[in-house]
Simulated scan of single mutants.
Amino acid sequence: MKELQLKYGCNPNQKPSRIYMSGGESLPIEVLSGSPGYINFLDAFNGWQLVKELKEAAGLPAAASFKHVSPAGVGVGLPLDSVLARACWIDDLEELSPLACAYARARGADRMSSFGDFICLSDTCDVSTARLIKREVSDGVIAPGYEPGALQILNAKKNGKYNVIQIDPDYEPEPLEKKQVYGITFEQGRNEQKINEDLLKNVVTKNRDIPDSARLDLIISLITLKYTQSNSVCFVKGGQAIGIGAGQQSRVHCTRLAGNKADNWFLRQSPQVLELSFVDEIRRADRDNAIDTYIGEDYMDVLADGRWESIFKVKPDVFTQEEKRKWLDSMTGVSLGSDAFFPFGDNIDRAYKSGVKYVAQPGGSVRDDQVIETCDQYGMAMAFTGLRLFHH
C-alpha cells in the first residue's frame, strides 16, 4: 500500500487528507481493523517511536497512552503491587503479562487524560493485553504484531470498527524529516540521539547517589520527553511516568502541571480513595471522574447538593487538605526529567513537594548554580545531561 486516503485532516473541514511515502515506496503499516484518522496516525507514529526506543533502552516491554500528540502515560513491563493494581482498576484480572503491565501503568498514570487514547505497544499484542484494552475507552492501538486470540478480541471492540494498526518493526525512516507550515517546507535531521545511562554521568549536586532503579526512571522520563510537545517535564516512579506536563510556555508551569498529576496518581492509592464504595452500575470513566472530584477542592459542593448518591453507596468523608498533604509527604524516590534547562530553583521547590529525589536536565542556564543549590537544600541528586529534547 503506497498511500492511505483519510476521511479528513485535523478537523472535518480539512479535506482532502492522506498519508503516503514521499519516495513512492509502500507504507510500513497495515490497518487490520477500523479506519484510523489523521490525528490517530500522528499519535500512533509518535507513540511507536517512544515505545520502540524505550524497549531498546530498558530491555522491558513498553507501552504509551497517547492523546493529541503527547503521552498521557508511559510504562514498562514491571509487575504492579496490590495497591497500584487496585488504583489502576486491574485487581480483578488474572495475572497480567509484562506487556499488559506496561499498558496498565501507562493507562493508570492519568486515567482522565487517557480516556479515548491511542495505545502504542513495543511488543506483539498478547491476549492478556488485549483483554485489558477491551475494557478501556480508546481510539485504537499500534503494535508490531498481534496474537490471533488478541486480534479476535480487538476486532470485536466497537462492533468491529476499533482501529488496529500493525507496523513493520524493521522500518527505518529517512535521516532527514520534513513538514510544511503555511506552505513553507521545514527540513531537519531526525533526533537520533540515543538516551542511555551515559547521559547521567555528570552529577553536579553534593548527593551523587542515583540507584539503578532511579536511573531506569530517569531514562524513562527522558525518552518520554523526547516525544512530548515542548516545553515538557516528566515525573517517573517505579517504571511508570506518573505526571507529564506538556506544551506549556513556562517551565515552572510544566513542573506544576506534571507535579499535580503525580500528586493525583499518588492520592488515588490512599486508603481514603481505595475504600470508596461506588454504586454497582457506575461506568469506569464516571468512576475516574468521581475520584478526580473527590480528590479536588470542590468536593464539598458535591456533598452539599446531594450528587454523591448517584455515585457512592455510602457518603464518604471529606478528604481534608491536611490529610492529603500528610499522605503526599510520604511519597519519596520520584525521578524528574526536563526537556530543557531549569531557569530558576522554583521548579525544584515544586518538584520537592511531589517527592522528587532524582533529577535529569540539560543544564546550561545562567542560574545553574541557584538550581544546584536548591537541589542541595533538599538532598536531591541531579545530573546534567547536556542534551536538549525539544519536540514540536
Rank of each mutant, 00 (worst) to 15 (best):
F118C: 01
S26N: 15
K313Y: 10
K178A: 07
G116R: 04
S17Q: 07
A106F: 08
F278S: 08
Q272G: 13
I244F: 03
V203F: 04
W265M: 14
L216H: 06
G306P: 09
S122D: 10
D126R: 15
G116Y: 05
I19S: 13
T320G: 08
I311K: 09
C88T: 04
S338W: 07
G243T: 01
L4D: 02
V334D: 13
L216N: 07
V356R: 04
D198R: 13
T332I: 12
G9Y: 06
Y20I: 05
F384A: 02
F186M: 14
N11S: 12
I220D: 11
G239V: 06
L274K: 05
R256F: 15
S113K: 13
P173F: 03
T224I: 14
A214K: 13
F66R: 03
L96P: 00
S22V: 15
F319C: 02
V76H: 02
A64E: 05
T224F: 02
S338E: 06
I295S: 01
P144W: 03
Y378R: 07
H253F: 13
I153K: 04
L99F: 13
E192I: 10
Y299Q: 11
S277C: 05
C10S: 09
A150N: 08
S250R: 15
L4G: 01
A241T: 04
E177H: 09
V164N: 03
L154C: 07
P362N: 14
V334Y: 10
R307Y: 12
A258N: 14
Q272I: 02
S82W: 01
N289H: 04
I372Y: 06
L303I: 13
